[in-house]
Write a protein that binds this DNA or RNA. Structure first.
Lengths: 336, 336
DNA sequence: GCAGTATATGTTAACGTTAACAACAAATAG
DNA sequence: CTATTTGTTGTTAACGTTAACATATACTGC
């Protein structure tokens, strides 16, 4: 592997000038820049990251923390991840994924080690649950961190307004004439799940609609749970005319269950999801849903974490970026 | 963060002696070892990995390549991963996960860069599909690599004997008196899926049993596909008395489908899975399955890759380690 | 008791890069 | 035409660690 001094020897310029070209510093003559650039290409040179890390005391890498549950229960994080990756790609930072639960980040000590050893400059965390042990560690140690899909005080966050988004969905159903509405809810210890459920109740109350406890289906943000519990509801009796699912995956699980019992969508029951994952438009009927701009959220979070790392997390006041949501109208909701 | 020279100053020993203690070299007096060890603890010292990488020309990290499909469609890789992580934990190597499809390893150039820049010393690949572009790159560039869950010529592999394992499962069913057996098959472009299907047919032929094309259910190693296609089979008519699923997840998807139509397991139909994932023993009825020692496979692969990296992949002849499989008898198969 | 070996410690240089400063030339101002 | 600024290039030291060699001391065998 070629080094900076190979380029230096080849071109006759000092290694410092070469370094300047590589790092796009100014104060380099056009002539030097060209000569060095072509040599870099010829040698297929890329800077040695270990040497850079050592001198810069920075790793140029961001850690992405997610839980196994998230990986398995939701496709939604895939889109977020794509947004993150494609943004980071442009900024000379690397990304490492840490699945929490795994020994990697299982203890506070490990997490701090990653930072102290300069293996990681900052963290991205996707939708941590309420009782996530490491959030405290991140906060008290002032580690550059951006949270995606949840709003924590004192943290930098990229999130949607779950209350507003839920109202958007429910009021869409109401506008279509629905008066009996059920909900498929998410994991109890996650903020987004809690906020969406609260907003659901609030919205029905606001419109003077009945809140029927039997029409709450536990889905845990998973396909299978939603599916099984929808089947249970079917066994027990009356259905609402519409269902609001706290994410698309549960909506799909529920739809599959309804179909298996010959309940027609949207003929017999309407259903609206949340997220707008890729699958949503592929199933039959295509799912009407409240769209979160997941890709853009990933991008925004990536930009923000780079900013924090470069400027120093201590100097930049924490802020939460709220993205807009919208209804994507497809064919799973019927006008009554 | 403390450095080696802090320890040196504190204890009065040279940095070289400190380095020796840290690396467990011999030729250090017991006295020095103790003094330095306590200082290391007091300072909470850990070696700077960037400096180490620079001087050693090695990253001490292994890349784990998996595809997004695998992450989503199977729990089985989780267990493998645990085995890998816990083994590596003991050996002073780090693990980085690369989800292929992602830009990280999307091109041959990227992959080589990882190696050339010394960011990664070697790769672990979980069950690559037949047409995985990067396998060629890994091979022609002699990059230390171990494959888990597939057997490629010229590569180091950790795998089970799919033929033998499938025979084990089918002959168990036959021993229980089953004569009409269907199969839920996996993703067409994966070796394990292909091998299991071939073995299935071979085994039925060997015992002179009917091979009914209608009793092949496409499952793509996914819960949902198995579920949907089982429903389809139910709509169309006659069932076999037993079902062999190429993985547990599909078995479970199929069972849920059968239950939703009031087909009793094992009363009306028996089912046997493959893998023995955690869920298998938790569902109702607990699933009888052909157990792969996934955890141990992860461990073995981790040991092997470390060996390759340390000794140099070129010097060590490639070998495939075959793990034994066994029947785990639970309650999803009835004796006829 | 002396060469020869083993054990314990230290010194120096190197890994590849960048920051900080120094030097020099060319351009501008007065 | 000198003084000052601007632009371009180079030199040195540093980041934290380990390899290779050097030195010193203690232990062996005869």
């Amino acid at each position: 592997m070629a080094t900076i001094s190979d380029i230096s020897k080849k071109t006759g310029y000092s290694i410092m000038t070469v370094s300047r070209v590589i790092n796009n510093s100014k104060n380099v003559s056009e002539k030097a820049r060209k000569a060095i650039a072509t040599a870099v290409k010829d040698f297929n040179y890329t800077p040695n990251s270990a040497a850079r890390r050592l001198v810069k005391q920075k790793s140029q890498t961001i850690g992405l923390i997610i839980t196994y549950e998230q990986i398995f229960s939701s496709y939604y994080f895939l889109t977020i991840m794509k947004g993150i990756e494609e943004k980071l790609e442009k900024t000379d930072y690397n990304l490492i994924m840490y699945a929490s639960n795994s020994p990697n980040v299982s203890s506070e000590a490990k997490l701090l080690n990653l930072i102290n050893q300069k293996l990681i400059d900052g963290f991205l965390v996707i939708a941590p649950s309420k009782d996530e042990f490491f959030m405290n560690t991140l906060h008290t140690n002032k580690i550059p961190t951006v949270i995606i899909g949840a709003s924590y005080p004192f943290f930098n966050c990229v999130d949607v307004d779950n209350n507003k988004a839920t109202f958007l969905g429910i009021e869409y159903l109401i506008k279509k004439g629905h008066k009996s509405i059920g909900m498929i809810r998410g994991t109890k210890n996650r903020y987004d799940a809690i906020e969406r459920e609260k907003a659901f109740i609030e919205c029905l109350e606001k419109h003077g609609l009945e809140i029927n406890k039997r029409w709450f289906i536990d889905g845990q943000f998973e396909y299978r749970q939603a599916h099984l519990n929808t089947l249970k509801l079917l066994d027990e009796g009356t259905l609402p005319t519409a269902l609001f699912a706290a994410n698309d995956l549960m909506a799909i699980g529920s739809m599959d269950a309804l179909h298996s019992r010959n309940v027609k969508i949207p003929g017999d029951i309407s259903i609206i999801g949340f997220d707008d994952i890729d699958l949503a438009k592929l199933i039959q009927p295509p799912l009407t849903t409240v769209r979160q701009p997941l890709y853009n959220m990933g991008e925004a979070a990536a930009s923000r974490i780079v900013e924090l790392v470069e400027k120093g997390a201590k100097k930049t006041a924490s802020q939460t970026i709220r993205m807009d949501t919208e209804i994507v109208e497809r064919e799973s909701v019927k006008k009554l």
